[in-house]
Design a protein around this nucleic acid. Structure first.
Lengths: 228, 228
DNA sequence: CCAAAAGTGTTAGAGATACACCCATGG
DNA sequence: CCATGGGTGTATCTCTAACACTTTTGG
């Protein structure tokens, strides 16, 4: 198998999985059951199999950890400092992912493994160089959300505009002007207004909307940007 | 060495090296002397050593291939399709790099290895999945040049504004309005105007300018963007 | 009818775009 | 004095930012 004279490190994928849980931006962490960093929290992830694409590996790991197999996933950086894993040389390809916790109502922790959703503003200390990876992923998410309609990955298919605004405010960590926000969002031509309204609210009911993903796919090829 | 039961693929770095040679955006390619893809052109790169950081590996390879050790270098994507290398599983971390061909007057090819600078618009067919990697790097370069002052990596320390404009036009593949371009560039507050002018031109001599990198480093942390 | 959040329009300022002429240099 | 490209100023338009009141709903 290792028929060449070159070094063969281990290669893993690690996923920074974001989700919006009760209005809080959270991150999925797994408690390590084995050394090193036993009992520390870490990013979900694992070894890339020999005949498996990197993205396939990330999807497989996420499916195992969360049961979710329909999510936004994007590779964003490889980490390979020689001693980032005390056991042996491990190079990891990091992905960031968004899980729609409305679609999959797996609100908090998952199955056998000890997994938990932690608020990004209140993370425990993490194993390996995972804190660094998380910081990079967060900053990537903040940049990206301004150029691509990622926010709709966090919320139900039918959503209200205040809901969308709230997601932007949560991710960007700042307040946005309601009127300007709506104008810009609707001006993209990607939002379909429905007749239906939310119910059971103690105030004026907001209208539901849809995001037109097909239209985005068409436009984005033409170099269009989605800016808030 | 391979003391764990997990798979251990080979890991390489590959570099997409851009340079501006006589006003043409070029890319450094190496002719492969060995199978597979013998005699085909490929990206410079090679195996990551066991005790070497990924970026260090990329720098080392570039130093070997070009003699240059002071260049812009950024990791941009890992490629790991199981059969991208016919010999065995090879995962590659791709970097894009910019060589200042004014600073290092190694205009075209390099040393022992058969290396050549090819215009990006007229590339030969490439080994492995390198054509795909190059396309991704190009698009990355085009995006990035709008947000960060990468262009100055291509040109001499002292430059004229028409020279900068030309680099933008070359990379973005479109004409820019001279007056607006200058206004925006100078409005960044990052360009120092010198008294000195170019010489030996058959028309009005352009003034030299400097790019204030320190100022950029300060400002960019504050989230400022450099837009053209 | 009250509380609470949804929804809406206008104005001022900043930045982008479009455009035409004068200037300095070498030959 | 001519050819060549360097250099500048202004008007319009579009996008952004700031801001306050009316509407709908459930209780």
């Amino acid at each position: 198998m290792h028929s060449y004279k070159y070094p063969h490190p281990s290669v893993t994928v690690d996923c920074v999985v974001f989700g919006l849980d009760e209005g809080v931006l959270k991150l999925l962490l797994i408690k390590r059951l084995l050394a090193p960093f036993k009992d520390k929290w870490a990013l979900p992830g694992g070894f890339v199999l020999m005949d498996e694409d990197l993205e396939t590996a990330a999807l497989r790991e996420l499916k195992e950890e969360t049961g979710v197999d329909d999510l936004y996933l994007e590779q964003f950086q490889a980490y390979g400092k020689p001693n980032r894993d005390p056991r042996e040389r491990v190079i990891t390809i990091a992905y960031f992912a968004i899980v729609n916790l409305f679609k999959y109502t797996l609100k908090a922790s998952t199955d056998a493994k000890e997994a938990e959703w932690y608020p990004v503003n209140d993370l425990p200390s993490l194993a390996f160089d995972h804190e660094n990876i998380v910081l990079n992923a967060l900053s990537k998410l903040q940049n990206k959300v301004l150029r691509e309609p990622l926010v709709f990955e966090f919320i139900p298919e039918k959503f209200t505009l205040p809901q969308v605004q709230f997601v932007y405010e949560t991710i960007l960590q700042k307040k946005l002007d309601k009127r300007n926000f709506r104008k810009k969002l609707l001006a993209t031509g990607l939002i379909e207004v429905l007749e239906e309204h939310e119910t059971n609210v103690t105030h004026r009911a907001a209208r539901f909307h849809l995001f037109n993903k097909d239209e985005w796919n068409k436009k984005s090829r033409g170099g269009l940007e989605f800016r808030i």
